[in-house]
Design a protein around this nucleic acid. Structure first.
Lengths: 156, 156
DNA sequence: TAGATAAGTTAGCCATGTCTAACTTTTGTC
DNA sequence: GACAAAAGTTAGACATGGCTAACTTATCTA
């Protein structure tokens, strides 16, 4: 049995959740952290291929704000995970499943950014916050963002 | 010079950001990750003290969904960081700065949850997503959430 | 085409946050 | 008060994702 929904009413009460539910929530967050690296990389790789024609470690390192060896190591993990295809010293390509993941991430990213902007948040902040937020947005919440976005178009 | 704001218009364009800005964004996310543990713990400790009278490792472990040794290790890190006060085998207390951090986190948490609920998201999902999202919400965005929340009260 | 420069890799280090197994301390009960 | 059960700690392992230093490969250019 689920709790009654308050939906906007008395919004600052502290909800007393069942310990297991809370634990599951934290587990979800930890899982999200594990996929963040992969998501950020494939998203960025797709972006680079589109705008630059190819994805190079040096560029990835610059955009991510990490050093080249970090990129090398992580790319080889992505390769092991079947998300990228590549030979040493060459540019990086996405496999089909990498492509798919990238597409989903970019879509989600765009929705989150657009949603934040629709609240009046400046684009730079929206982009920065989205980078962190997007990995923790469930399907349900993403849909709610999409809905709210539609509403905001209607009202403008 | 900052970009023109679109504020709801053409919300699905992919913004081409300066590499340094993008890198700074990712750095911010990495920093947020480093404070997440501390924030989750002090938030939970404050909650337990309030609802249970004291915060015990076994309870923290259960709520966080981790094993007791993990709690012991992390609590000692928090102690080193000056956020908690405690002797071995005893309950855990917050220092003044721990208290302060906990208060800020709980406030932020409540706002995020309330905001998500105001979009029509069910409470369980709101709680789960908030757990991950809250650590990546900037002051600007938190204020925007607060504003939107006020709006939603007016319209109900 | 040779040599310099840029790009990429390898090796090895570190901190974080998780775990299990084994041990110690505290608590509760007969 | 003794002893069993529960709570907490310690030791040691592991994966992740950063880093620097040193090396290799590719690219550019004189």
């Amino acid at each position: 049995m689920t709790k009654l929904q308050s939906h906007g009413r008395e919004p600052f009460e502290t909800v007393d959740r069942a310990p297991e539910a809370q634990a599951e929530g934290f587990a979800t967050v930890r899982q999200a952290h594990e996929s963040e690296m992969a998501e950020d990389y494939v998203e960025l790789i797709a972006e680079l291929i589109e705008t630059r024609g190819e994805a190079r470690p040096v560029e990835i390192a610059e955009r991510l704000g990490v050093k080249p060896p970090t990129v090398t190591k992580n790319i080889s993990r992505l390769k092991a995970a079947g998300l990228v295809r590549r030979e040493p010293y060459r540019a990086i390509f996405l496999t089909d499943s990498g492509q798919e993941l990238a597409e989903a991430c970019r879509q989600r990213h765009r929705i989150v950014v657009a949603f934040l902007c629709s609240l009046g948040i400046d684009e730079e902040t929206a982009e920065r916050d989205a980078e962190g937020i997007e990995h923790h947005v469930s399907k349900t919440t993403l849909e709610a963002f999409g809905q709210a976005l539609k509403q905001s178009w209607r009202h403008e």
